[in-house]
Design a protein around this nucleic acid. Structure first.
Lengths: 240, 240
DNA sequence: ACAAAAGTGTTTATTATACACCCATGT
DNA sequence: ACATGGGTGTATAATAAACACTTTTGT
């Protein structure tokens, strides 16, 4: 297991004529305040002291790209089996003040409440930030963030990735709220439900919400096998 | 200007603990035989002797990623101002027999007839291959090729990139043939023309085809400014 | 009984698809 | 005159969008 070290000296970077890193934009959907959040850490690089940055690290010559991303996520969130997707590689010669560091950007989706369980057990330094409040990050991370956000928005419309940010059981309203917040659009409740019903990728659970002072909503779960069946039949998934 | 050298010794690769390269999948549409082609060179890497490979090279520590792609294209095709898009970074530790080489894959679109003009003047080693005939390439280039081909297909449907593979003036039938060959689908001529007319991104030129023994087709040109106007109005381009 | 969010159908507008005949040119 | 591909319109089907009332629970 590699140790993560984010504060690399100029010497270390110069010795590798060119260094490669992985940076992860970690998205989570907070359904308590209905907000899309990203996980950031305070950078340890002197030149950007005090600024927030993405979760990243140099990759070792013996490590695959995806494995590096998984390692970083495991180290910073305690979580494995998160949704992960390579987005773009950023390699401007001027992007790192200490030398040439090319970085492969990933976005990752996690279920915030699973993460919450972990921070109680582990001593994790990362903090959630509302994506709307992030105005500036260390390095070119703000640009990377928005490239990844655009990719997430596309993924959400074209593939059932949203479920990776929801609890295993969720209400249709929670799902719609997620779509509305991430895509920044308003959806019609009846049309949204009809479309999901047509895809037949959700299973209705026998449980309902409890402790709400209104009609309790039914819980649903995403059925990956049914989704794959849909795709195998050449059908396309698209919301909205 | 960097020189391209594709046959790197194990020593050279080991000295950079990790090396970064750029590989370009160069697509061209041959409207004489209505076929999508890719440009390949014979690899100089001993382990893959005699096999075809993508156009690529190591990138220097002082060179931006896009600039490396532009340099490779200029060197191998004599062409500048080609359409270029980063696709994905391939970094499996085992992908290069001589060491760790992570490669950033690009796809590029060129007008074949402009290229033909260049090979008469320059001594270029690359050769066109029909994409349907390529079954195997050196390294993991076959996988890279198909990842880029999928990206091209998506781009063609969602953005007006096809024009980068056609002459400046073209007939509507040539444009439709390109879509049919690249996407591997059959389109209805009337519906295709109606949709293009609706987008209003083509200008009809005063010229027509000559030397054909049937009713000559009108020539059209793509109008980039009109396309940008369309997008600025929040409209979306999609074919089919 | 009231407040609060869940759940549910129908009508209309938009977009996509299917399809066949006349036109202009070269031989 | 005939062969060849170029050019054009209309009807139907499918999909998306707009819209409001009833239901269930807790207080």
């Amino acid at each position: 297991m590699h140790e993560i070290k984010t504060n690399h000296s100029s010497e270390e970077l110069k010795n590798q004529a060119l260094a490669l890193s992985v940076d992860c934009v970690v998205f989570g959907y907070d359904h308590d305040d209905n907000d899309l959040k990203i996980l950031l850490i305070k950078t340890e690089t002197e030149e950007f002291k005090g600024q927030w940055s993405l979760l990243g690290d140099l990759i070792s010559p013996s490590e695959n790209l995806n494995d590096a991303a998984i390692r970083i996520l495991k180290k910073r969130t305690g979580m494995e089996d998160v949704y992960l997707e390579q987005v773009e590689t950023f390699g401007n010669t001027s992007r790192h003040p200490r030398g040439r560091v090319v970085t492969v950007a990933y976005y990752s989706l996690i279920k915030i409440e699973d993460y919450i369980l972990n921070i109680e057990k582990l001593d994790l330094e990362a903090r959630w930030h509302s994506i709307t409040e992030v105005k500036h990050l260390a390095f070119d991370h703000y640009e990377i963030l928005h490239t990844c956000y655009n990719r997430l928005k596309r993924g959400l419309r074209e593939r059932p990735v949203g479920f990776s940010m929801l609890p295993k059981k969720f209400t249709l309203q929670q799902l719609q709220d997620l779509y509305e917040v991430v895509l920044h659009i308003k959806l019609d409740r009846r049309n949204f439900r009809r479309k999901l019903q047509a895809y037949d990728i959700l299973v209705k659970l026998p449980e309902s919400q409890t402790g709400v002072n209104h009609r309790p909503a039914k819980y649903y779960a995403f059925d990956q096998a049914k989704y794959e069946e849909l795709i195998k039949q050449g059908k396309t998934f698209r919301i909205p």
